[in-house]
Design a protein around this nucleic acid. Structure first.
Length: 476
RNA sequence: GACCCCAUCGUCUAGUCAGGUCAGGACACCGGGUUUUCAUCCCGGCAACACGGGUUCGAAUCCCGUUGGGGUCACCA
């Protein structure tokens, strides 16, 4: 039997890191087992659901490389995959539960419910519905009413969780939950059970925060006579202070990480490794993760978000990338930063590739190549430290020597500069740093020769001479 | 508060199921090396079995308790 897994986001916001991780683990398992990964949009909350959120979620998943086999914009034989398009499918289930005595109508007012809850809380008991309407046997003409599930009140329900192991719930603790609202629409716990069943989902893998819903859902499966899928609950991702991940701890949306210049390969790598391990594997591709992945390696404890490690991984992925491909990838980031690139881009990117933790860093590190000579952001401290009275003549002389270089390659430039230093009887540092400051306006930057080559002969000689002009006159 | 989950370096984790290698790796941090700078890269260092009881010749590992952290308690999903 093929394994069928799903990710079921609500389009009430952007795709956040936690959701992305849940989707990722489902996807990994589906790909590992030649299963099916389906996407279902849970948009029954009409007030908060927005089409643009759905678009963003789909876009971010695609960016991460999490492709789905069935779902919106894809179709599949178990559709439709948007819950609003599935209305009406749930009525027969509710009807049969009603006639079978598994559900009942309830006319309790919200005020009464609140009172019951508060009273229960006052005695320290679990706040749950007291079953007031359960024995009343209300008919369809009882006025405004909801429909409640007549949950078993004795015994226990065991969730055989694939990550946590058996989790036992005392049925007394469980509520007669509402399965249909007074406006006639079904509620989440019922809908999710029916949809998962109708979409033939074999494994329900979701966040830890749903673990307490699972016994209720299992009871519903049983009441409707439906076979149980397997369940697995993933520990949630925490902020670095151990609390729930929120904006206080940094960015929580996948989109924000894309905008900041994180590579999907790095984010997927980090997210996979967060709460899952396979020996000492640290850096791995999605394909390698698929090969090694398994629910048995999933940690039970929540994991804290570690920006430093993500950044390190991102840098490793940037370094490992083909320079031409990387250059191509950076295009939108240059555009977003208002930097106009030219045909030196690939060479430029090569000089800063090992110096960037993000694509945004990479753009900033490359900026000086593309700004007009007069617009270089001068670091005055660097300028006074390295553009000394003695530097001026050296730079001018060196520019002349460089101008005579037969070819403009790092291999050709290096001996020229070194011979020059020897002839002038100065250390390389006395020449290299003034050149760097002249080229970039800053005291740090790419390697000398590769930088001169990437910048091009014209720009390099121009800036070296301009740098010489900035040097104070020697006072004798 | 009730219920549920969890507990190894600051962080992610290996080791736990089948008790017995100085508790291993990675990030971060500190020191050193390579280097014209920065970064990369290389070498080294710091650093953990939450606590208390058991069981056992022997416990990070099995059991119980305590403490701590997290999650959930809607006509939201």
């Amino acid at each position: 039997m093929t394994m069928r897994l799903r990710f079921a986001p609500s389009p009430t916001g952007y795709l956040h890191i936690g959701g992305a991780r849940t989707a990722l683990f489902n996807w990994l398992l589906a790909r590992k087992n030649d299963g099916v990964f389906l996407l279902r949009i849970e948009d029954t909350d009409r007030k908060r659901s927005k089409p643009e959120f759905e678009e963003q979620i789909l876009r971010d998943m695609a960016w991460m490389g999490l492709d789905w086999d069935e779902g919106p914009s894809k179709g599949g034989e178990y559709g439709p995959y948007r819950q609003t398009e599935r209305q009406g499918r749930y009525d027969p289930y509710i009807e049969s539960m009603l006639t079978g005595g598994k559900a009942y109508r309830c006319t309790c007012s919200k005020e009464r419910l609140t009172q019951v809850r508060e009273a229960a809380q006052a005695t320290g008991a679990k706040p749950k519905y007291d079953g007031h309407c359960r024995a009343l046997n209300l008919g369809p003409d009882c006025g405004e009413h909801v429909i409640r599930f007549a949950a078993p009140q004795t015994g226990e329900t065991v969730v055989a969780d694939l990550v946590k192991g058996d989790v036992r719930f005392n049925n007394e603790e469980l509520d007669d939950l509402i399965i249909q609202r007074s406006d006639g629409t079904p509620t989440y716990n019922l809908v999710v059970v029916i949809d998962d069943h109708e979409m033939a989902v074999s494994h329900v893998i979701r966040g830890d925060d749903h673990l307490n819903n699972t016994p209720k859902q299992q009871m519903l499966y049983e009441a409707m006579g439906l076979p149980l899928p397997k369940f697995a609950h993933l520990p949630i991702i925490l902020g670095n202070d151990g609390g729930k991940m929120s904006k206080r701890h940094g960015d929580t949306s996948v989109g924000a990480y894309r905008e900041k210049g994180f590579l999907p390969s790095a984010l997927v790598n980090y997210l996979t490794r967060l709460g899952w391990a396979c020996g000492d594997m640290e850096q791995f591709s999605a394909d390698e993760a698929i090969a090694a992945f398994g629910l048995d390696g999933v940690a039970k404890a929540g994991a804290k978000w570690d920006m430093d490690k993500l950044s390190w991984l991102n840098q490793q992925w940037i370094i490992a990338m083909d320079t031409a491909e990387l250059a191509q990838l950076t295009l939108p980031y240059f555009a977003a930063a208002g930097v106009e690139t030219d045909d030196r881009l690939e060479a430029v990117v090569g000089t800063v590739q090992a110096r960037a933790k993000t694509l945004v860093d990479l753009v900033e590190a490359s900026r000086f190549y593309f700004t007009a000579d007069d617009d270089l952001p001068w670091d005055e401290k660097a300028s006074t430290k390295f553009l000394k009275p003695t530097s001026g003549p050296l730079l001018i002389a060196l520019a002349d020597v460089l101008e005579a270089a037969p070819v403009w390659t790092p291999e050709a430039l290096e001996p020229i500069v070194k011979d020059f230093c020897e002839a002038q009887e100065v250390g390389l540092g006395k020449v290299a740093q003034p050149i760097r400051v002249s080229m970039t306006g800053q005291k740090t930057g790419p390697g000398l020769y590769e930088m001169l080559v990437a910048a091009g002969k014209t720009m390099s000689l121009g800036r070296i001479r301009a740098g010489a002009a900035r040097c104070p006159q020697e006072v004798s």
